[in-house]
Amino acid sequence: MKFTINITKRIVMRIIAIILLLFIAIFTFLYFQEYNTAELTKQKIIFDLKQIKTENIFDFKTTDYLLKSSQNFEPCECSETIHMQPDFMLTSANEIVTSKNPNAYCCGLSFYWIKNDYGEERIEIEDKKNKFYFTLNKNPEGKTYAYTVISNMEIGNDQRIKPNQVIKIFVQQILDSHEFTLLRTDSESQYDYLIKDLGDKFLIYTIPNHIENPHGIWFQLYSKKKYFTEF
């Protein structure tokens, strides 16, 4: 009787061990499952991908289009010490505008530092001459994890939104780099996407109103994980 009970315990323990090992194997397999660029759709980008808010968006060459479109900006001295380059207004906005100096005007650009009721910070940079503005999104550690460039949405005589020619130049410069995969969507959708595989993550540029008549560009990083995106 005792011998039979010992055998039964061993069988139960083996079953438990097999189930545990199977669970670990399944978890490990799913944990390392990642999307590839060809799998991405509008729905997956919007609903499935997890945005990364812990890394500096400027570490991934996201201002190259400004340097290539430098004819739209005139370099100048700012505050007698800062020499403005086309991308400097974004990468060094904190040096120009801070919580102690929440509004600044520099080189034809207006800077605004904003903090909402949830403690989230952002900096807005308005370019009145070219009729668009930038918004920089910051995490609690002060890193700019995403930013946007948006048209001021001018309305023409026909009551339609007029295209912003500078933003069209920006989009064309990005396309000309041949570093991104274009994901076009149907006419009912409001966005096209430019996707770059960075190995362990995606760099995705969202283009409101499609690339033919863009109203802006959203610059964001996303995890490639399919499952367990909170880990």
Results as ranks from 00 to 15, higher is better:
Gly156Glu: 04
Gln51Thr: 10
Ile204Gly: 07
Leu40Asn: 05
Leu40Cys: 03
Thr41His: 03
His210Gly: 00
Glu55Cys: 06
Ile211Gly: 00
Met13Asp: 03
Tyr31Trp: 07
Gln173Thr: 10
Glu120Asp: 15
Glu55Leu: 11
Thr54Gly: 02
Leu66Thr: 08
Ile150Phe: 12
Lys143Gln: 14
Phe111His: 12
Ala146Gly: 09
Ile82Ala: 05
Leu20Phe: 14
Glu120Ile: 13
Asp64Thr: 04
Lys131Leu: 09
His178Pro: 02
Thr91Gln: 13
Ala104Cys: 00
Glu188Lys: 10
Glu80Pro: 00
Ile217Gln: 01
Glu80Gly: 08
Phe170Tyr: 14
Lys115Gln: 15
Asn209Met: 09
Met84Gln: 08
Met13Gln: 14
Leu182Cys: 01
Phe202Cys: 11
Cys76Pro: 00
Leu136Arg: 00
Ile204Cys: 04
Gln173Tyr: 07
Ile204Glu: 12
Asp200Asn: 15
Gly199Arg: 02
Lys68Asp: 09
Lys9Asn: 06
Lys50Ile: 04
Gln71Val: 01
Ser177Val: 03
His83Val: 03
Ile155Asn: 02
Asn164Met: 03
Thr63Asp: 04
Ser177His: 01
Thr91Ala: 06
Asn130Trp: 00
Gln220Gly: 08
Cys76Lys: 10
Lys168Met: 12
Glu80Ile: 09
Phe23Ile: 04
Phe88Glu: 06
Thr135Met: 12
Leu90Trp: 09
Glu39Thr: 10
Ser177Pro: 06
Leu20Gly: 14
Ile24Arg: 08
Glu74Pro: 03
His210Asp: 01
Lys44Ile: 13
Gln85Asp: 05
Pro86Leu: 07
Gln165Leu: 14
Ile125Met: 04
Glu126Pro: 00
Leu194Pro: 04
Gln71Asp: 11
Glu124Pro: 07
Pro208His: 03
Lys225Phe: 09
Glu124Ser: 14
Lys100Arg: 12
Phe219His: 11
Val171Gln: 01
Phe73Asn: 00
Lys168Gly: 13
Asn36Asp: 10
Ile150Arg: 15
Phe219Trp: 02
Phe27Pro: 10
Ile11Ala: 11
Phe47Met: 09
Leu175Arg: 10
Asn139Pro: 01
Glu120Trp: 14
Asn157Ala: 09
Lys68Ile: 00
Lys50Asn: 13
Asn157Ser: 12
Asn116Val: 02
Asn101Arg: 15
Lys201Val: 05
Val166Thr: 03
Lys129Ala: 13
Thr81Glu: 07
Thr4Asn: 14
Ile16Ser: 01
Lys168Gln: 06
Gln172Val: 03
Phe111Val: 04
Asp176His: 02
Lys224Ser: 05
Lys42Ile: 00
Tyr35Cys: 05
Glu179Ala: 07
Glu95Trp: 00
Leu203Pro: 00
Phe170Asn: 01
Phe134Ala: 07
Phe134Gln: 06
Gly119Pro: 08
Asn101Leu: 13
Asp200Phe: 04
Tyr133Lys: 05
Ile114Glu: 15
Ile24Val: 14
Tyr205Asp: 00
Arg184Asp: 08
Leu20Ser: 12
Ile161His: 01
Asp192Trp: 02
Ala17Glu: 05
Gly199Lys: 00
Lys2Glu: 12
Lys9Arg: 09
Ser151Phe: 02
Asn137Thr: 06
Gly156Arg: 02
Gln159Val: 01
Phe134Pro: 01
Ser70Met: 02
